[in-house]
């Protein structure tokens, strides 16, 4: 290890080391405490016995540490420790110089995902509310569908009830919608660089249709009421609105187009020797600490 220079710096004089000396008081105290409680299930005398042990243990312990801690000197015996490996060679993932990935990971990517999610969520709400306005003359329709059915205590609700304003349902809808949009935004930012071609097509068309298909397949069970009132064409339109907006924002912010020619490992964002921008500052270990 590199610390050879520190040898014998603080402890002892290189010949021996201070260690706390062995002591019997802790076991005595533990025994006393156990006896104290054991008296409750046996006889009172055991408790008294235990109490005496506790007092003795405390006093003895006290003398161990005060006025100063009792030490024993443990002599240091020279015994070389060999730190070596038979596997000195480390394989590398083969990469050429221009394959250095751009700053795609880190907090900036997460921020891009969050922004994309929020923007997409707003964009998605527009067709959804439009749908409510056109079919049921109420902007609350889609919101109530999500919020009211989302918590599952609907039983045979009427279309009129869905079309009126309920603050609880609005609140729940906002929470569910917000969480889902953020999550999908993050998912996009995680996945898009791995499939760098046509990001907007992927986000705006493939993902929404896939997603709608999955939801369509089990919504009838997850929430029959919601399933009964939903309009699938409008649902797909909303999903596409989300995908296009979120995809655009994310692909702009994370320079996805530049990673087209990278190997898969790089696109997946692996931190691997030879692929990291830390490479050049090898000699300045102080620098790395600040990045935590």
């Amino acid at each position: 290890m590199e610390e050879t220079a520190h040898k014998g710096a603080e402890h002892g004089n290189g010949q021996s080391i201070h260690l706390p000396s062995p002591t019997g008081w802790p076991i005595m105290l533990a025994f006393g405490f156990t006896m104290l409680l054991a008296g409750l299930v046996t006889t009172f005398m055991i408790s008294i016995f235990g109490f005496v042990f506790i007092v003795a243990g405390c006093v003895g312990w006290f003398h161990d540490v005060l006025p100063h801690e009792q030490h024993e000197e443990v002599p240091i015996l020279e015994q070389p420790v060999v730190i070596t490996t038979s596997r000195a060679v480390v394989e590398r993932v083969k990469l050429t110089g221009e394959h250095r990935p751009h700053a795609a990971g880190g907090t900036s990517a997460v921020m891009a995902g969050i922004q994309g999610g929020i923007a997409g969520g707003i964009a998605m709400a527009i067709p959804a509310m439009l749908y409510g306005l056109i079919t049921h003359h109420s902007v609350w329709y889609a919101i109530n569908l999500l919020g009211g059915a989302g918590v599952g205590d609907w039983a045979h609700v009427t279309a009129a009830a869905i079309a009126t304003f309920h603050w609880q349902w609005l609140l729940i809808a906002c929470v569910i919608h917000g969480i889902m949009c953020l999550l999908v935004g993050l998912l996009f930012v995680a996945m898009l660089p791995m499939l760098p071609r046509y990001p907007v097509v992927l986000c705006g068309l493939v993902a929404p249709i896939l997603w709608s298909g999955i939801i369509h397949s089990f919504l009838g069970f997850v929430n029959p009421e919601l399933s009964a009132h939903i309009s699938w064409p409008w649902f797909v339109v909303s999903q596409i609105a989300f995908g296009v907006v979120a995809g655009l924002i994310i692909s702009r912010q994370t320079h996805i187009h530049t990673s087209k020619h990278l190997p898969l490992a790089a696109r997946m964002g692996f931190v691997i020797p030879g692929m990291t921008h830390h490479d050049s500052d090898a000699g300045t270990p102080h620098g790395e600490k600040e990045t935590h």
């Binding site: 000195a88 480390v90 795609a104 999908v184 998912l187 930012v189 692996f270 691997i272």
Partner: peptide, 23 residues
């Protein structure tokens, strides 16, 4: 008898396998 390539992680992949389970 040598060490395989060392991979320290990938924020992107870990994000993906956090978000999907949450969904």
């Amino acid at each position: 008898d040598q060490e395989p390539p060392q991979v320290y992680g990938s924020l992107r992949i870990e994000l993906a396998w956090t978000v999907i389970p949450i969904l």
